[in-house]
Amino acid sequence: MSPERFARINEMLDNRQPDLTLCLDKVHKTNNIAAVIRTADAVGIHQVHAIWPDLDMRVSGNTASGSQQWVKTIRHDHMDEAQTQFRAQGMQILATNFSEDAVDFREIDYTRPTAIILGNERDGVSPEGIAAADQHIIIPMIGMVQSLNVSVASALIMYEAQRQREAAGMYGQRRLDEDYCQVKLFEQGHPIYAKACRRKSIPYPKVDALGQIVADAAWWERMRSPQKAVK
């Protein structure tokens, strides 16, 4: 791994925000899903959630520009599953929804642990998502259209969250689990060895402070040995 590559991955890990997430409520258009994930990566969101009860989610690699390698998508069959996970992490739950109690999305304190529910292209947030929210938010609009594309709406909200968190000094300090960071450093810094480990069922080694593999002679011997054919 080059020093530049190693530094870039570490910078990404240092800026990830594990207590800020999105929940896509039955969003089904792959180009929108991929665009949301791409923006999530850009603002340092560690993972997104998706309510997807019927079909397997597929992300367009071209639209996501590889960001799905860095942002994990957690699938749920029902909103209750996602809500339970958000509550367990002490998150405030927001939902984009036109209601009497909705507030301008910029009035929210995003420095708090936060989950943001965004609805699908046709129906918006589901009744279950609306009920799960602590607060409804809206993006003020003074034109003729009444709503934005979900990927555009999510980008506006995510960048407001980033603005607030940056001002509060919440970036540049690593808050991710070290085991996860080691996996990412190895997989993305040494992809050929990582692929070989998966193929040969060899445990991942550690990566040192310079980005180099730390492994004993037995590990290297297993790595060099030809893969045995499966009978």
Rank of each mutant, 00 (worst) to 15 (best):
V125Y: 02
Q164V: 05
A153I: 08
R112M: 12
S201R: 13
S201H: 10
Y193W: 13
Q146L: 04
Q146M: 04
N97P: 00
Q188D: 00
S201P: 00
A196P: 00
T111V: 09
V103T: 14
Y171C: 12
M144K: 11
G143S: 11
C181L: 06
M144L: 14
Y110Q: 04
Y159C: 02
I157D: 03
P140A: 06
S151E: 05
R163T: 11
K200G: 02
S99A: 14
M141W: 10
I142V: 11
Y110H: 04
V125Q: 06
Q182G: 14
P203K: 13
P127E: 12
D179E: 14
A132T: 09
T96H: 00
V125E: 11
G172E: 11
E160Q: 15
S147I: 07
V103P: 03
S151V: 03
S126I: 02
V125N: 09
A196C: 02
R122K: 10
P140M: 08
N120H: 07
R165G: 08
D179K: 13
I117T: 06
S151L: 05
G129N: 02
K200R: 13
R122I: 06
G172I: 05
A115V: 07
Q173P: 00
Q135K: 12
H190I: 07
V125A: 11
R199L: 02
Q146R: 14
R106T: 15
V145W: 00
I117V: 15
T96K: 00
E100Y: 01
V125W: 04
E121Q: 07
I192C: 00
R174A: 15
P127V: 12
M144T: 14
D123V: 00
D123M: 03
P127I: 11
I93R: 05
K200D: 01
Q188Y: 13
S154T: 15
L94I: 10
Y180V: 14
Q173Y: 05
I108S: 01
Q173D: 10
M158V: 10
A194T: 02
F105V: 09
D104T: 09
G119C: 07
Y180M: 15
A133I: 11
A196I: 12
H190Y: 03
Y110P: 02
R165N: 09
L94W: 04
R198I: 00
I93F: 08
G129I: 04
Y110F: 15
N149F: 07
N120Y: 05
I157R: 07
Y171D: 06
L148T: 06
Y171F: 15
R199S: 09
D123E: 14
D179L: 11
E166Y: 12
E166F: 11
R122Q: 12
P140I: 12
G143N: 12
D104P: 09
G169M: 13
H136Q: 06
S99W: 05
G169Q: 13
A168R: 12
L94K: 09
H136K: 03
A115C: 14
Y180A: 09
G129K: 01
A102I: 06
D104E: 08
C197E: 01
V152Q: 13
E166L: 13
T114H: 06
C181K: 01
I130V: 15
Q164L: 09
M158Q: 11
A194G: 05
M158E: 04
P203L: 06
E160R: 11
Y159R: 08
C197V: 08
A161T: 07
P127L: 11
D109M: 10
I139C: 10
M170K: 14
R174P: 10
K184L: 14
T96D: 02
A194V: 05
Y110R: 08
